[in-house]
């Protein structure tokens, strides 16, 4: 297959830590095959050479936090046939969306010697708040196998297989003992979108929801139960206001529990 006929893949970064792009690079066994199947046209983290648009697929990492970003994402949307967001920042605003409940000017004054140099938006928002998104891939970072599944599905012209059920299903399939029931740990697994393979509970930690809300999250029911079991409302706010805290189901929940006396 000649270079010109291969689909052109571009990878863009906004406000993010680069971890999701690294998930692409850490596809060690498949990376060469992938580089053969697509033309890596724009991927600054991996390659200094860039090819001009249009692109067949744009993978977008990061959230929108500056006015410049909000213009650049419009351009990228126009240059890409398919736009796939990768990771918690791009799909939910990321951990930096914690600013959305605070005064960001206060932060810049506290952190920077010359706050006047800082130009930033009041909110960190997901890509879908700015342009239409064709597909969203969750996770902080994304699961590299899921990333490969999306690219494979796009190349073969089939739907990617990425179940949106709870993390609990993944725990049970791998035989992990429920940390919520057996240890009383506040775990977001029942509300959280599968895809990580249930890593945290396998290490005796509660799920902190980095894959965002599952398909039919019943946050009220879980949080009411956790509160009854002795977890303070403030703890529940922190729990739901994490890496995907600005995603609707988690946002609504944390705002509701924040108002509790």
């Amino acid at each position: 297959m000649g270079a010109s006929t291969r689909p052109k893949l571009a990878v863009f970064k906004f406000s993010s830590c680069d971890g999701c792009q690294l998930a692409l690079l850490s596809l060690e066994d498949e990376l060469l095959e992938l580089a053969g199947a697509v033309e890596i046209a724009y991927f600054l983290e991996a390659r200094s050479q860039t090819l001009p648009p249009p692109y067949d697929v744009a993978l977008v990492e990061g959230s929108i936090t500056t006015a410049e970003d909000s213009k650049r994402i419009q351009e990228i949307r126009q240059q890409a046939k398919l736009l796939v967001t990768i990771g918690a920042c791009a799909t939910a605003g990321g951990i930096q969306a914690l600013r959305n409940w605070k005064d960001v000017d206060e932060f810049t004054r506290a952190v920077y010697a010359t706050p006047a140099y800082i130009e930033t938006l009041k909110q960190s928002t997901p890509i879908s708040a700015h342009v239409p998104v064709d597909f969203e891939l969750n996770g902080c970072p994304v699961n590299k196998a899921q990333l490969l599944e999306v690219l494979t599905a796009l190349l073969l012209g089939r739907a990617p297989h990425l179940p949106a059920h709870s993390v609990c299903v993944e725990c049970k399939r791998r035989g992990t003992v429920c940390v919520a029931v057996a240890q009383g740990i506040a775990c977001l697994g029942p509300l959280t979108h599968a895809g990580c393979g249930a890593i945290c509970p396998a290490f005796n930690r509660g799920c902190f929801g980095c894959f965002g809300p599952m398909e039919s999250p019943n946050a009220d029911a879980l949080l009411a139960h956790l509160e009854e079991s002795g977890h303070a409302a403030a703890e529940l706010v922190r729990l739901t206001r994490g890496f995907t805290g600005f995603a609707e189901a988690f946002r609504t929940a944390s705002e509701k529990w924040e108002k509790r006396p």
């Binding site: 059920h165 709870s166 609990c168 299903v169 049970k172 697994g189 019943n218 029911a221």
Partner: peptide, 13 residues
């Protein structure tokens, strides 16, 4: 339905 999480745990255990 107001209490159920649809997490699937009951079916899997």
């Amino acid at each position: 339905a107001r209490r159920c999480l649809a997490c699937g745990n009951c079916t899997l255990v």
